[in-house]
Amino acid sequence: MLPYARQSVDEEDIAAVVRVLNSDFLTTGPEVPAFEAAFAEYVGAPHAVACSSGTAGLHLACLALGLKPGDQVIVPTISFVATANCARYCGADVIFCDVDPDSGLATAETVREAMDRADRSKLKAVFVVHLTGAAVDLARISSVTQEAGVALIEDACHSLGTRYDIEPGRQGLVGDCALSDFTVFSFHPVKTITTGEGGMITTRDPEAAERLSRARNHGLIRTPEDWVETSMAFDPVDGEPNPWFYEQQDIGYNYRLTDIQAALGRSQLRKLPKLADRRRQLAEQYRRRSVSFGTNARLVSSAHNPDAVLHLMVALIDFETVGLTRREVMLRLKNRGIGSQVHYIPIHCQPYYREMSATPDLPGASRYYARCLSLPFYPDMTVDDVDTVCSALSDVLG
């Protein structure tokens, strides 16, 4: 069975984990800061803060922004529910924006349209999602958010290793935060690199990085210069800091990454160039073979981002014209040993959000969702596997 995605773990990764298991620290040890430093260097951001999941990273970014009840944020409706949920954790209201029907990506135009539906006095942030691994037009969207005076958060859980245009003739790497306040990554097993579960937030703001670090660890402060409860914090005789003392000045969470996970992440990060190249090779083979799909199916458009390190390989299928439902296509592929999935159900259609407030018709998202189907795509696939998938889909579609 070819699943739609799976992790790629080798003996070096296993050895890195075993090394930590044989060490003194399984958590709160040296592996996490080492992983953070290596990751920050790779993406070109001054600060990287590791956490327990991509969802935790999105929540921490919302906390660092100080989102609260009554605030509003804009979120593309084509994403996993976590992108919207993280704002709700803080009590903020979500305004959903539409996406391009052929890429699933938010655009400057769809963000502006959502802003027109928002209360500008309450709007605090815009989230963008680099869906499938292809980057949004960050330069144009950033100009919109800067003009509106709101923060920009990149949900980059799909797009580690992808480059984007900062300006004509100048590219950046997703995560460098050249045009955004925070970028959040996921290390779930099906992502480009994995820590089992885990996430990372990058930023250029040192104070924000400190807030992120505190919030992931119950809000605890261990630096004496920041303590306010001086009667308990310092020795009454010599005035030196008490070595056991810590202080909580705000609420926080247990969103830490373990040293076991960080060791796996460091090992995977060292192989990221190879993993990225392999994904590009497989994507190119899919593009070559997709001509066999006929006129009723094609791959998601990535013309503006041809060298993206894709996380998902999504086909857009006109199921109505083909005369098959999506479920029927998925079952027929499964019978041929090929897994598939749907990414994603528009979030504004979920009962929780539908009952919270009415969202107008978002035609781009509706069109994208009606046609999307994720095909097998992961580094351990072979070119022959891609040929098998494409041939099977062509046969199923007739």
Rank of each mutant, 00 (worst) to 15 (best):
G339F: 08
G149M: 14
V322K: 12
I345V: 15
Q261F: 00
R298N: 09
S186H: 12
L138T: 13
V291Y: 11
L173P: 02
V111S: 13
A34C: 00
A209S: 12
E11V: 03
C62M: 11
D71C: 07
R117I: 06
M1H: 03
T55L: 01
P376S: 06
V111K: 13
E355S: 03
V291M: 10
A297W: 01
H311M: 10
L160P: 02
Q171W: 05
H59M: 03
A303C: 01
L373P: 12
R289L: 14
T110E: 07
T321D: 04
Y352H: 14
G199V: 05
D205E: 11
A16W: 01
D361G: 10
R170N: 11
N305C: 11
V126S: 10
K191E: 15
L275W: 07
V300K: 15
T132W: 00
L212I: 06
S143F: 01
Q249N: 07
S159E: 02
L160M: 03
E355H: 07
P306N: 14
A40Q: 11
P351S: 08
G104E: 08
Y353A: 08
D318T: 09
A208I: 08
P346K: 10
R211T: 10
S267R: 04
F182G: 03
P224S: 01
A15M: 06
N22A: 12
G294H: 02
D277N: 12
S180I: 07
Q285H: 09
A134R: 05
N217P: 00
I78E: 09
H348W: 07
P3F: 02
D307Y: 01
T28P: 00
T382F: 05
A48N: 04
R120S: 06
S159A: 15
F96A: 12
M313V: 08
G323F: 03
W227C: 06
L324G: 10
E247P: 10
S186I: 09
Y246P: 09
P273H: 11
T83Q: 08
Q268R: 14
A114C: 12
V111M: 13
